[in-house]
């Protein structure tokens, strides 16, 4: 295929892959906007948060902690904990995005969220190539979508009180299940998945906030390290 055709195919594939996530984000964007207004933030302050932080879970938690006087260190510290998993995600993405030009590479990294990262990793691990158009195609619309709905949230107030009622909260779970299934199909390792689920469940009981995500992920990585065999060299 000529380069322009490849680029277009990559972008189209990216849009198809990320589309359910865009829909799934709608209620959460609206809620973040509404919560921001209720917490006393100006519209521009909330938009500064959505655009510069761009991390849904940590935004929810921060807005929940948003009281006067502002517990600045507690909010920033919690944000760091919630987003620690990005360290693992960036490390896992490194070998696949190293070859990309630096602008799209850093756009992807700075706007890396669970969803676009997962799509890019799935693409990289199944096709073994990651093109710029695909990386930007899962990242830019996902980023702009969050800005749009959190802005509308500040304007429209509380349209959706309970995303669970309409099953919106399950969209992410369902998408992630299909992604995990996809990773398993190329990877064939079950032990990291089982270990991650078990450790996450235990950690959720014992640790505050969203530490279970980071600790559970580490459990999965540890299982991968423990079960590593040299024969993996053949396809690794």
């Amino acid at each position: 295929m000529p380069p322009s055709k490849t680029a277009q195919a990559g972008f189209t594939a990216a849009l198809i892959d990320i589309f359910p996530m865009l829909i799934g984000m709608v209620p959460f964007g609206l809620i973040v906007g509404t919560m921001g207004k209720q917490a006393g933030l100006e519209t521009w302050e909330l938009m500064l948060m959505s655009s510069a932080v761009f991390a849904g879970a940590s935004q929810f938690i921060a807005l929940d902690m948003w009281t006067t006087p502002l517990p600045a260190l507690a909010i920033i510290g919690t944000t760091l904990m919630v987003n620690l998993r990005h360290v693992l995600m960036g490390a896992a993405a490194a070998p696949h995005i190293k070859g990309l030009p630096s602008l799209p590479r850093y756009i992807f990294l700075c706007a890396m969220a669970d969803e676009n990262w997962a799509m890019a990793m799935r693409r990289a691990m199944s096709d073994r190539t990651l093109v710029v158009s695909y990386v930007l195609g899962v990242t830019v619309p996902f980023y702009l979508n969050w800005q749009l709905w959190s802005f509308l949230g500040t304007q429209l107030g509380d349209l959706i009180n309970d995303p669970a009622e309409l099953g919106f909260d399950f969209v992410f779970t369902a998408v992630f299940i299909t992604l995990i299934f996809g990773f398993w199909k190329t990877d064939k390792r079950l032990s990291p998945i089982i270990a991650s689920a078990c450790v996450a469940l235990i950690a959720q009981q014992l640790l505050p906030g969203t530490w279970y995500i980071f600790v559970g992920s580490l459990g999965g990585v540890a299982a991968a390290a423990l079960t590593y065999k040299r024969k993996d060299d053949a396809h690794g």
Partner: peptide
């Protein structure tokens, strides 16, 4: 090989309590 286990591990940890 270990890094290739990260995606499934992270996504599993995120959804495990929900599921």
């Amino acid at each position: 090989s270990i890094l290739e286990a990260v995606p499934a591990s992270v996504l599993t940890a995120i959804i495990a309590p929900m599921v």
